[in-house]
Each structure stands twice: as C-alpha cells, then as structure tokens.
C-alpha cells in the first residue's frame, strides 16, 4: 500500500472530528463517516490516527471499514463513474455495461485507475428507471447505455 503523507492541518481537523464524538470507541462509525467526508476516502494513515484517538486497535478500525461498503480506502478518481444496479437497470443489461467499464479501465469495482482519472462504483436504484441502464460520471447522467457505448462515453473525458 502506497504510504500517504497527510497535511498537518487536515490531521488537526480529523482530531476535531474525533473530539466531536468525545473520542469514544463506540462512536467509531460516526467518526469514520466524518473522516471520509474530510478526506474523500480512508487511507491507512487516517485509520491509524483514528485508532489512536479513540483508543481502539487499528485492526478493529480496519475491520469496520471493510465491513461497510460505504467506506472506501481508495481515493475517488477525478471522474467517479457509478453504474446503477437497481432491478430495472440490471435486467436491461447493466452488468454487461459494468463489465465493459472494468475491461477498458482495467479496474475492479471500488478501484481507481492508476492515473487517478476514473473510479468505478455501483449504486442501488437512482430512481431513473425510465432511462435504464443508467450510468453517472460526476454530475452527468447517461441513459439507456449499452456495452457498445462505453468506449464513446469514456472518450469524452480524454
């Protein structure tokens, strides 16, 4: 795992998040939420600081981070790609679309490309079932996407 250097001011903010919850081990999930808002993700170093502040083991923090899919240990890409896996999208071939993104970008779900450009994640129903299958990249929404469209969509971000 690449080691991340954290800026001192951010560390201070992180400690404030912990203090907001009285540095209580029982508040770990809330603290992790706050930390993820702060950093966008939860690198090892952040987890180590939290463990220290809340006086729990790093292994325990990591256990919780890996248990909830909401938490991520990888930084989001500059263009976060989300693929809707709600029922409507799924039956209309969202999985094939997902596979195509995975193939072209050579990443798994939850990962970010080496150049930091794209990250890939799945979502539950986004409520745009009329447009199924739906893909969002940053703020933009793409509807009725097929596997064949993936290349073209990505080329917009070249």
């Amino acid at each position: 795992m690449a080691s991340v250097k954290l800026p001192e001011s951010k560390i201070q903010e992180l400690k404030e998040v912990c203090q907001k919850y009285d540095n209580k081990g029982s508040e770990l999930i809330n603290v992790l939420h706050g930390a993820q808002e702060l950093f966008g993700y939860l690198p090892a170093e952040v987890q180590e600081i939290i463990a220290d502040e809340l006086n729990v083991s790093v292994a325990h923090v990591y256990g919780v981070v890996t248990f909830y899919s909401f938490f991520s240990m990888l930084p989001k890409g500059r263009n976060p790609i989300s693929i809707c896996m709600g029922t409507a999208c799924y039956v209309r071939g969202a999985e094939k679309v997902l596979d195509e993104f995975k193939r072209i970008l050579n990443v798994k779900v939850g990962e970010t490309t080496g150049d930091g450009k794209f990250s890939l994640s799945c979502l539950r129903c986004v409520g745009a079932c009329g447009l199924a299958p739906v893909v969002t990249i940053g703020e933009r929404v793409y509807g009725r996407v097929s596997a064949d469209d993936v290349k073209k969509i990505l080329s917009e971000y070249a």
Partner: peptide, 20 residues
Amino acid sequence: TVGVLSAINRGFESVVAPAF
C-alpha cells in the same frame, strides 16, 4: 490487549486478519 487481529470484510469474504 495487543489488538492485532480483527474480523474483516463480510459474508463469504470474511476472515480474521491484522489491519490492512
């Protein structure tokens, strides 16, 4: 109280492991 081990991941993937 060494705290090296924790259950991580969930379901079929779950296992006891050190941090990271």
